[in-house]
Simulated scan of single mutants.
Amino acid sequence: MRITSCAVLLAFGCVSTAAAAADAAVDFPSKPLRFIVPFTPGTGMDNIARLVGEKLFESWKQPVIVENKTGLAGHLGAEQVARAAPDGYTLVVTASNLVITSILYPSPTFNPMKDLTPVMIAARGTNSLAVNPGKGYRTMADLVAAAKANPGKINFASAGVGSPSHILLAEFEDATNTSFLHVPYKGTAPGVNDVIAGHVDAMFVATHTLRPFIESGQLRNLGVSSSERQRSAPGVPSFAELGITPGMPAWYGFLAPKGTPAAVIDKLNKEMTRILELPDVKSALEKTGLDVKPSSPQALQELMNMQLARFTDIIRKNNITAN
């Protein structure tokens, strides 16, 4: 009899918990939301956060506060969200480098892969291999041939040790059987500036970031690290066309603290998917070179798991450590 009573109480408790979670979703949101962007204003994540935030305010009548919290390649902002209440009111708007930092900055108190819950992929992006036009590399074949003839001597910039551009360089060296002299910078901007100035030869740069420098003739795009040509750079060959294995694609997405009710995650996902598919929002983001492709939470989790395995292998193989 006691067992039966316990079973009934346990079942009642489960039903009550599920009902409470459902009620939370019905009332959500009842106060302002916060989007933490762990990078500077003007980045892809920042643009997505502000566009989606404006539209959420229109539909839900609750303000969305966008905060830029930089540090440790996005790690600090993500950790702040992981420590927030798991109620759906605080989200991190970040990118695939979140997976890289989980490997490079192991912590007993924060693991992005375990302490955050995916909400969705908002958009995907690509990276391009940019060179200074004055260096004489007119095609990818020119650069690869020069690197093979001068192993370890051609300068290749990155946004820092362990940054996505550094990981892409390691992947590129493996795919082309080449060796470059890695020159890490503290961020993308100073690296790009030195490629333009001719102090370094090449750098992987987000395709949407690269566009104005290509149009002005300051840089040349030798190839897009993707399986097909990109709408934002239709005249540039993809790595696949060039016979080079593309690097892991970039994603931009939303994540919530672990333990956020599934019903709240679902409500956020559905409304933000609707917003991202609005013609004006989609057009605004695609003009910056992003490919708007909203996904389910499960799709983001699967992609992160796949990237974790691949990035771990690359980082260990190349002995990459955080600064």
Rank of each mutant, 00 (worst) to 15 (best):
G198I: 08
P164T: 01
R211D: 11
E171R: 12
L210C: 08
G191Y: 03
A202M: 07
F180T: 04
A206F: 06
A145K: 10
V195Q: 08
P184R: 09
V161C: 00
R231Y: 08
N221Q: 13
S227Y: 14
N150C: 02
L168Y: 13
Y185K: 09
S227N: 14
K186A: 07
N193F: 10
G198M: 10
A157P: 01
L181Y: 12
V183S: 06
E171Q: 15
I154Q: 04
S179M: 13
D194Y: 12
H208G: 15
T178F: 12
G187S: 08
P184Y: 07
R229Y: 08
F180S: 05
P151T: 03
Y185N: 10
N193I: 08
V183W: 06
G160S: 03
S225P: 07
S179L: 13
N155K: 11
L222Q: 09
R231H: 09
F156V: 00
S227C: 05
V224N: 14
I196P: 14
V195H: 06
F156W: 03
K148C: 00
V161Y: 06
S227G: 12
N221D: 15
D201F: 08
F213Y: 15
G187R: 06
H199Y: 14
R231F: 09
A157C: 01
I167F: 06
K186H: 12
L222N: 07
G198Y: 10
L168N: 11
G191H: 05
I214C: 13
A146P: 00
A197I: 01
I214K: 13
N150A: 08
N221A: 15
I154W: 07
E171W: 10
V224F: 09
G198F: 12
A146V: 02
T209P: 01
N150D: 07
S216P: 07
V192D: 08
L181C: 09
V205Q: 05
S226W: 07
A147P: 03
I154E: 02
T188V: 13
A157T: 00
K148P: 01
S165D: 01
N177L: 11
